[in-house]
């Protein structure tokens, strides 16, 4: 564990020094994230001009949900997204070899090696927005509920990572990754919209096979409705199952990996 932490600290140091070399891009990325946040909040604000509730939530509740989405997305962008972007290229070019010979887990190193320092500023912004949405919420939420909400958001980060990787790992067999990646980005819309708006089979699929509804919507639900053992067990069980499936698929992918470049 100590070795992994030391290694990760080195990744972070290297990423910050790299980000400082490309300063203009560093600020462009911050600008992009600010616009994404504004567009999302404006989207919900416009919808609430025409309805008092959406998926059973008021605008104040929706703002807390949006804050949660920003935090989960920012953590994902900071820790994993650069790595996921390059993984299909490494697989197709045979560059995974370099990481298979290292004395640490190949899944770990290929998932977190590139820490996005420029997205880290967005993470700070996202935390600020979430704090603001919680502070302006009209009724008392309670420290314990907020703490549980934050813990569940971290579980959501793990689930989001596992789901995203499940879309990328098939590159070991398919070689082409463009279509799958685009499809993955499209499905992330399910995470950025409240689960309460979905009905029937779609709602069920979003908490089981494609559990995007558990990433932010369920933690927000727990915050407003109070914790229930069934919901908490559901979140942890699905996240554990997805992570288990991810490690199995990764091993199968490595077995199929030929190392030959294409």
């Amino acid at each position: 564990m100590k070795r992994y932490l030391r290694l990760y600290a080195a990744f972070i140091r290297f990423s910050f020094s790299k980000a400082m070399e490309f300063r203009i891009d560093f600020f462009f990325r911050i600008g992009m994230d600010i616009i994404w946040n504004i567009v999302n909040i404006s989207f919900f604000w416009i919808l609430y001009q025409h309805t008092p509730l959406l998926g059973g939530w008021t605008f104040d509740q929706m703002l807390v949900f949006a804050g949660g989405v920003f935090v989960v997305d920012a953590v994902h962008m900071t820790l994993f997204s650069n790595n996921m972007w390059w993984l299909p290229t490494y697989i197709n070019k045979g560059d995974v070899d370099y990481h298979l010979v290292r004395p640490v887990s190949s899944l770990f190193i290929l998932s977190v090696r590139d820490f996005a320092a420029n997205s880290f500023v967005n993470l700070l912004m996202a935390c600020g927005i979430l704090t603001w949405t919680l502070a302006r919420y009209p009724s008392e939420l309670g420290a314990a509920s907020i703490l549980l909400f934050l813990v569940l958001l971290l579980v959501g980060v793990v689930l989001h990572y596992a789901l995203s990787m499940l879309f990328i790992i098939p590159t070991f067999w398919l070689h082409a990754s463009g279509g799958l990646r685009e499809f993955m980005w499209a499905t992330e819309q399910y995470m950025t919209r409240p689960h309460g708006i979905f009905q029937g089979w779609t709602a069920r699929i979003l908490v089981s096979i494609l559990p995007f509804g558990l990433i932010v919507s369920f933690p927000t639900r727990v915050l407003f409705e109070g914790p229930s053992l069934a919901v908490l067990l559901h979140i942890f069980a699905v996240t554990g199952a997805m992570f288990f499936f991810l490690t199995r698929l990764w091993r199968a992918g490595l077995r199929a990996y030929s190392s030959a470049s294409s």
Binding site: L47, T51, P52, L54, G55, Q189, R193, G196, F198, Q199
Partner: peptide, 15 residues
């Protein structure tokens, strides 16, 4: 996603 948002918006507003 848009279908769900639209239906939720119309049913919540009663319009």
């Amino acid at each position: 996603v848009f279908w769900a948002i639209t239906h939720a918006m119309f049913s919540s507003s009663g319009k």
